[in-house]
């Protein structure tokens, strides 16, 4: 059974001029252990799709199946990492990470222990008592990642996690994310990342779903067969990047 299946998912919103169709008839499955990237231009409904997968909003039509069961509310097996980091400025790094655990009813001593484990995994030891405003963007996103990992999700959803960061920070965090995903003692083995940076998708993912906009629809589902670690200078890397680019461009 697939981990996740979207069947003919569409989403529309009421709009001044009638109804705005954001997602149109999206169908795909995600298998266990897959790292999937969703790419497409802004306005193609990528983030909306992620919110539907997370169960934060229902599709207008169609079904989302998680481990074969239709989801009908927030999926507690998922955790999300946001472009804006979404940290509470009045809480320390540690308290921000514990907050997500509190929301899931985990006992205080367990919260502290778990937060400690993931603070260590993402390299935030030493920053426990810092406040978000004392941190660089890269450090803030490490907090966002630790907070998501601490709930030990089966499926990690990442909404443009590196788009608000400068290039050098993004390079570092992508490498760290891959290390975390590939390490055997990590509970999360499934990631869906939404990005508009094509190279990022080619560098990270096993599979790339290409969406076109107006309304958002799936135009390609590509397997990435490049060996890891992936070398951006290799011809195969560039060929795939070009292919994805032209798929998006053709329909823009």
């Amino acid at each position: 059974m697939a981990l996740l299946e979207l069947r003919n998912v569409s989403k529309s919103f009421p709009h001044a001029a009638g109804i705005l169709r954001v997602l149109d008839n999206i169908s795909f499955t995600v298998e266990h252990g897959e790292f999937v990237a969703v790419v497409g231009p802004s306005g193609c409904g990528k983030s909306t799709m992620l919110r539907i997968i997370n169960g934060l909003m229902p599709p207008s039509s169609g079904q989302v199946l998680y481990r074969g069961r239709q989801i009908d509310g927030i999926n507690l097996d998922c955790a999300m990492v946001f472009q804006s980091f979404a940290l509470m400025p009045w809480l320390t790094v540690k308290a921000n990470i514990e907050l997500g655990l509190e929301a899931r009813g985990i006992a205080p001593d367990q919260r502290e222990k778990r937060a400690g484990v993931y603070i260590d995994k993402v390299g935030l030891d030493g920053f426990e008592e810092a406040y978000p405003r004392e941190l660089s963007g890269g450090m803030k996103q490490r907090v966002g990642l630790a907070r998501a990992l601490a709930v030990e999700p089966q499926l990690l959803l990442m909404d443009e996690p590196f788009s608000a960061l400068d290039a050098l920070t993004a390079i570092t965090l992508r490498e760290e994310l891959l290390d975390i995903w590939q390490s055997a003692d990590m509970p999360v083995h499934n990631i869906i990342i939404v990005t508009h940076i094509i190279e990022e998708a080619v560098e990270l993912a096993d599979r790339i779903l290409v969406l076109a906009s107006g309304p958002g629809r799936l135009v390609a589902d590509l397997k990435v067969n490049l060996p890891r670690p992936r070398d951006r200078r290799k011809e195969a890397f560039n060929a795939l990047t070009d292919k994805v680019f032209s798929l998006i461009e053709e329909r823009a």
């Binding site: 660089s136 400068d166 050098l168 920070t169 993004a170 390079i171 570092t172 490498e175």
Partner: peptide, 27 residues
């Protein structure tokens, strides 16, 4: 974090490059 990003970039470029070129390529 920038330092580690620079080291990764250099490694990707065979261990040596022009600082000016790196700055330009990474915007």
């Amino acid at each position: 974090t920038w330092v580690f990003g620079l080291l990764e970039t250099l490694d990707d470029r065979g261990g040596r490059d022009d600082g000016y070129k790196i700055a330009r390529d990474l915007n």
